[in-house]
Design a protein around this nucleic acid. Structure first.
Lengths: 197, 197
DNA sequence: GTCTATACGTCGATAGAC
DNA sequence: GTCTATCGACGTATAGAC
């Protein structure tokens, strides 16, 4: 019999992933395995038993974040909404949802961006992005409207990461409403007199 | 007198920054000072003479990238364009300009994102972003149009970083044309029937 | 099967010779 | 101004307690 009290290996793994997220958020990029292990209440060797390398731990952390984000989209899906673009609308709401504060949003994005430098993480992130794009393309919106709306949502979401300060919360809410409106009535965008003048 | 042949300290610094960029692009995040120094033709100790720490070297690299990006915007400024939104149009062109290939764009963005995890780099990036936002806000466009256009350009620019695959080059060019059109005629966006339905 | 303790190799940083 | 030599810290690997 092992040494732990009532704690399954899965619990320990989750504990370690959560500790990694917290320590990296607090200490930044240079967080050590000792820090993470101590924060989870185990030794560094104990950590290595569950995750053979630091990269594997960070890969698991990245996967949990990607799954979490996918969960946010699903949570924003409106059961009464059966019209084309329903998934895109959930995507917009998930991306533009107000976070606790700007700093938290910036740190969360910085964490993902940082993990992207690990090849294994870049790979699963790319696979996730491809699946997400496929879901969005299957959502029934005209391609050029989808591209505009997704790009705008992505850009607005990334803004805090770069540290800029373009407009406040009210303007962000207005942008969210208008992007969602475009998904409901794509002709608004398509029928603008683009080639006149 | 020192030991070098005809090379000024400034030359050596530029050489080391260029070597850092190249080695990090090739080897990824784990590039060592030895690798970078060897690639520039000096020893690790020689590198450390010019940059007291690895962070300082990477800070200089980040600054050079930020300056380079600012230069791209200035290069896209149309001398004959005096209308409101001229700086925003240059910003859009600089961000959506086709790079050599998608992989190069992704690596370039990944480099910046990776450097952002260093506190000193995050600070200068934030200062740069604030100055850029101030320039954009002073460009004479209605705030809600500016926000949409900048968010869409940012998001389209970041797309390769996440590894997704939403549409091709032609669609990107169309998006660029339409965003620029909106800066020339903001009323197109403002006068849409947002609250109807 | 789960974890602790410990040893090993590498890297960033420092000191001092030339 | 650049080098060699060396130190301390970290990621990795492993032997063994329970």
């Amino acid at each position: 019999m092992g040494r732990t009290a009532g704690r399954t290996p899965e619990d320990t793994r989750r504990l370690l992933i959560a500790a990694a997220a917290e320590v990296i958020r607090a200490r930044g990029a240079g967080a050590t395995l000792d820090d993470i292990a101590a924060h989870a209440g185990v030794s560094k060797g104990g950590l290595v038993y569950h995750f053979a390398s630091k990269d594997e731990l960070l890969r698991a952390l990245a996967q949990s974040r990607l799954d979490e984000f996918r969960g946010w989209i699903d949570a924003e899906l409106d059961p009464d909404d059966e019209a084309p673009g329903r998934y895109t609308r959930a995507y917009i709401r998930a991306l533009l949802a107000p976070e606790q504060d700007q700093a938290a949003a910036r740190e969360s994005i910085a964490l993902i961006a940082q993990l992207m430098t690990i090849p294994a993480v870049a790979e699963i992130a790319r696979a996730d992005a491809l699946r997400l794009d496929a879901d969005l393309r299957a959502d029934g919106l005209p391609p050029e409207v989808l591209r505009l709306v997704v790009a705008a949502a992505d850009g607005a979401n990334m803004a805090p990461f770069w540290g800029g300060d373009l407009g406040g919360e009210d303007e962000l809410r207005q942008l969210e409403r208008r992007l969602i409106r475009l998904t409901r009535e794509p002709a608004l965008w398509q029928n603008l007199p683009w080639d006149r003048d």
